[in-house]
């Protein structure tokens, strides 16, 4: 198979490594349950990807405006009018747990 790492385009500039504690912190932020084995797997896999992504450091970005959208357009505005009917029964037909029109979750302690 062909190798796709062109030296000109993907200069290895240092190795980035993520430990499994960091992985667990990220998983917690993302609300993903990971066990120890998975955490290690992610640590290795993500490190490779971040290594690769570090190619961005080679870019000359001084004075460049970040680009959040492909098109240079402005937000369109919608008239203030009620256009959505009540469809609670339709929407709650696919809900995992409801009672009296409310969505149920395990008790939230405040």
């Amino acid at each position: 198979m062909v190798t796709l790492r062109s030296p000109a385009l993907y200069v290895d500039i240092g190795t980035m490594s993520l430990n499994s504690d960091e992985v667990r912190r990220i998983a917690q932020l993302a609300r993903l349950a990971v066990d120890d084995r998975e955490a290690e797997g992610f640590a290795a896999g993500l490190s490779d990807i971040f290594d690769f992504v570090e190619a961005l450091d080679a870019a000359e970005i001084g004075g460049v405006e970040p680009m959040a959208h492909p098109l240079d357009a402005e937000q369109r505005l919608r008239p203030d009018a009620v256009t959505e009917p009540d469809q609670r029964e339709l929407f709650q037909a696919i809900a995992p747990a409801i009672d009296g029109g409310l969505y149920l979750v395990p008790r939230v302690i405040e």
Partner: peptide
Amino acid sequence: HEGFTAMTGID
């Protein structure tokens, strides 16, 4: 929270 024991209802 009212009206539920182990659950919270979301509106």
